[in-house]
């Protein structure tokens, strides 16, 4: 790859961080699911009872099962169904971490438009992840 076609420093950095987090997320997803199905940890809702609820709308499901929403799952990490959730959280958080990693590069290069884009993007993702905005009833 010649210098002209070589991706920018921040692009390569983004790719490396994303790769690490994606692999970690997938590993955690598989591990958590195994813990969930194997019954190694107690569950908030027994796995064989989930089919009674999976045909319901999500707000009915939450109301009937008492499953946590937003970040309320954090204190319940000793439950199998919550552990199976961790990989999903890591996968969803990966992009946010990547943006945080490349932001200093844009600032250092005085690339103001992209520094602003990245800052706004981080804020948008933080807002989405915060749980303050949800849809539904």
């Amino acid at each position: 790859m010649s210098n002209k076609t070589k991706p920018s420093e921040e692009q390569l950095k983004y790719a490396s961080v994303l790769q690490t987090i994606s692999l970690g997320g997938l590993a955690l997803l598989v591990f958590g699911f195994f813990v969930y199905l194997s019954g190694l940890l107690p569950t908030l809702v027994p796995v064989n009872e989930i089919p009674e609820y999976w045909g319901m709308r999500v707000h009915d499901f939450v109301e009937k099962t008492g499953m946590p929403t937003g970040w309320d799952w954090v204190p319940l990490l000793n439950h199998g169904d919550i552990v199976s959730f961790l990989g999903i959280i890591l996968l969803a958080a990966g992009t946010l971490v990547c943006f945080a990693v490349i932001l200093p590069d844009f600032i250092r290069k005085k690339d103001t438009p992209f520094a602003i884009i990245v800052i706004v993007q981080i804020l948008i993702l933080l807002l989405a992840a915060s749980g303050f905005i949800t849809g539904g009833h």
């Binding site: 796995v47 989930i50 169904d81 999903i88 949800t134």
Partner: peptide
């Protein structure tokens, strides 16, 4: 995810 609409199963 925050709404509870991601079922691992």
């Amino acid at each position: 995810i925050n709404k509870g609409a991601v079922l691992p199963l």
